[in-house]
């Protein structure tokens, strides 16, 4: 009797661990910020972070799934448990670190550039667009310049094109491909070095997952895989 009971308990426990091993790690991203993350023609998440994220999950032995979420509510939805990781080109900042935890950075601090319709924009006098809740928006506000915020990166570009704003401040990796292909837009010479590199955002109570992914990032850094991806997608300097 005791033995059967013990066997049943063991079975139940092993069943539980099995279920835990099966667990899917859900990666939340914005899906609107090329080359970091965007939706490709098939409607799937694609980009630097897609490739890197899949590689990290493989190395950490995790089954991962991608979900898209609005940028503005990306942190509240993480802490309430709708997904487990934020991988959305999110710079590591002290402010965000109070609410969530970050892994080590998987990109070098990417300089932020101004993109405008003409090269002689006087920033102190200009209207500068930025995406809300970004380091760039915080930076423009700190300078005391006129800031207009938009919910999506696309709208910040459109604001410059239709004259609502004189310049947009965003990660160089995001604005450069746009300026390259659009004859009307150009990058200003001035650049800002803000932010401390991009990391994965994880719930503060999820220490185990953070360690696993941290180790995976260290491993892609060590064998050069990360540098290859950074060069391929042009998201800043290599390590």
């Amino acid at each position: 009797m005791k033995k059967t009971l013990l066997a049943m308990v063991l079975l139940a426990v092993s069943g539980v661990t099995l279920a835990a091993d099966d667990a899917v790690v859900r990666l939340g991203t914005e899906g609107a910020y090329p080359p970091w993350n965007f939706l490709n023609d098939a409607g799937e998440v694609d980009g630097f972070e897609r490739e890197l994220g899949d590689e990290l999950c493989k190395r950490a032995g995790l089954t991962c799934e991608w979900v898209t979420n609005d940028w503005d509510s990306i942190i509240p939805n993480l802490v309430s448990g709708n997904y487990d990781v934020i991988m959305a080109g999110m710079s590591i900042t002290a402010e965000r670190d109070e609410v969530i935890d970050f892994t080590q950075n998987y990109s070098q601090p990417d300089p932020s550039s101004y993109m405008a319709m003409s090269a002689d924009v006087d920033l102190a006098d200009a209207v500068v667009a930025a995406q809300s809740n970004t380091i760039q928006a915080a930076f423009v506000a700190e300078q005391g310049w006129t800031l207009v915020e938009f919910a999506t990166p696309e709208e910040t570009i459109a604001a410059v094109k239709n004259g609502e704003a004189d310049a947009v401040l965003a990660d160089q990796s995001f604005v450069k491909p746009i300026a390259d292909e659009d004859a009307d837009l150009m990058l200003l010479e001035r650049e800002e070095l803000i932010g401390g590199g991009v990391g994965l955002g994880i719930r503060e109570s999820d220490g185990e997952l953070r360690e696993k992914l941290d180790a995976a990032i260290a491993s892609v850094k060590a064998d050069g895989t990360l540098n290859e991806l950074i060069t391929k997608w042009e998201v800043g300097a290599t390590f």
């Binding site: 490709n40 023609d41 609005d70 746009i178």
Partner: peptide
Amino acid sequence: GVEDIVYWARELGGSKQAKFTA
């Protein structure tokens, strides 16, 4: 998190660079 018609219209209508789409 439900992708409705306005979300898609904004996503599809936004400018796309040759690097990231056919």
